[in-house]
């Protein structure tokens, strides 16, 4: 070890280990002996990100929501109070917008689950490996294009003189007015978040061993019973995981309502208050609403034991 051979066969004494090398060895030995040090190195950076930056700003948001904007000067006054929340409850329009947002989010979630289960089931349990790869690829393919592109594409399809009405007109079925409505929002959101729901459902279904389904059939269950009593309960955590994506992504969106909808979402109100009105305390208070809704959603999911099998 201490000696090396040169090409001519001469023996040379190895140079003494450099300071850097010694330091690296020392660090290596410390990491080897102290598991906590290894863990700190492994998780430290991401924990810093999650706790300090993410949770920190969430905390700031919460704090800000108790401040208020001076109605005359427009300046932010750091006075503690429930003014913003009072305003939220008293003004019917904010309640309506919140309920509408949650309602459409739920509709989108249910739609995506209903669409994802058959696709995922086919991909996971029926399709040949080649078809499965193609199918999964086509499910994630839309994610490679920009969100805006996808929303604008739907705008062109659904708008009054868009592709949909053009086609309907040419087969003499009249026309529909889907563009810029709640229906178009529902359709576009369901399309946007479908990959996020399909993939976890696929993963859950794919994990179910074939023999479980055979065992159910063997014990006398028809396909429907097997699906309801065996497949669905086992895949349930995956379905809930997917639903969390669809629900939370809809809840927080403010671009699609602008581009294809005729209504405002919670996000739009927040955006206007931050960007236009500069009423950041009110925006913060309203932002607490979807955070609370999401918290309740996760609690229910936990109550349904959706996290136990993860």
């Amino acid at each position: 070890m201490a000696e090396t051979l040169t090409r001519t066969g001469e023996r040379l004494a190895a140079p003494p280990p450099s300071a850097v090398r010694r330091l690296r060895h020392a660090i290596g030995r410390v990491l080897y002996r102290i598991p906590a040090a290894r863990l700190a190195l492994l998780l430290g950076p991401i924990l810093l990100w999650m706790v300090v930056i993410y949770l920190g700003s969430l905390g700031l948001l919460f704090v800000t929501s108790f401040w208020r904007q001076d109605s005359v000067t427009g300046a932010i006054v750091q006075n503690w109070g429930l003014t913003n929340y009072q305003f939220l409850v008293q003004e019917g329009v904010y309640r309506t917008i919140a309920i509408r947002t949650v309602g459409i989010a739920l509709a989108v979630t249910v739609t995506d689950i209903a669409l994802a289960i058959p696709i995922a089931y086919y991909a996971a349990r029926i399709a040949s490996p080649r078809v499965r790869t193609l199918l999964l690829l086509s499910i994630v393919l839309p994610l490679w294009s920009s969100y805006l592109v996808r929303v604008y594409a739907w705008r062109t399809i659904l708008s009054g003189d868009g592709v949909l009405n053009w086609s309907l007109h040419h087969v003499h079925l009249g026309s529909v007015n889907l563009g810029f409505s709640r229906w178009s929002l529902w359709i576009v959101f369901s399309y946007l978040w479908l990959p996020y729901v399909t993939l976890p459902v696929y993963a859950a279904l794919e994990r179910i061993p074939n023999s479980l389904i055979e065992a159910s059939t063997d014990l006398g269950a028809r396909w429907r019973t097997t699906f309801r009593r065996v497949i669905l309960p086992i895949a349930f955590p995956g379905i809930v995981a997917g639903s969390i994506f669809a629900f939370s992504l809809t809840l927080g969106d403010y671009i699609a309502p602008d581009l294809v909808g005729d209504t405002e979402f919670i996000g739009n109100v927040i955006y206007q208050n931050v960007g236009i009105a500069n009423n950041i305390p009110f925006a913060a208070a309203y932002a607490i609403v979807p955070a609370l809704v999401m918290g309740v959603y996760l609690l229910i999911a936990r109550q349904l034991k959706a996290f136990e099998a993860l």
């Binding site: 061993p209 023999s211 065992a215 063997d218 006398g220 009593r229 086992i234």
Partner: peptide
Amino acid sequence: VNTVFQDYALFPHMTVHDNVEYGLVV
């Protein structure tokens, strides 16, 4: 006919009792 599977194929989300009862329930 009924089958005893090589990997047992017990339903993981059901108790022993519910597993055994399954055939009778359906």
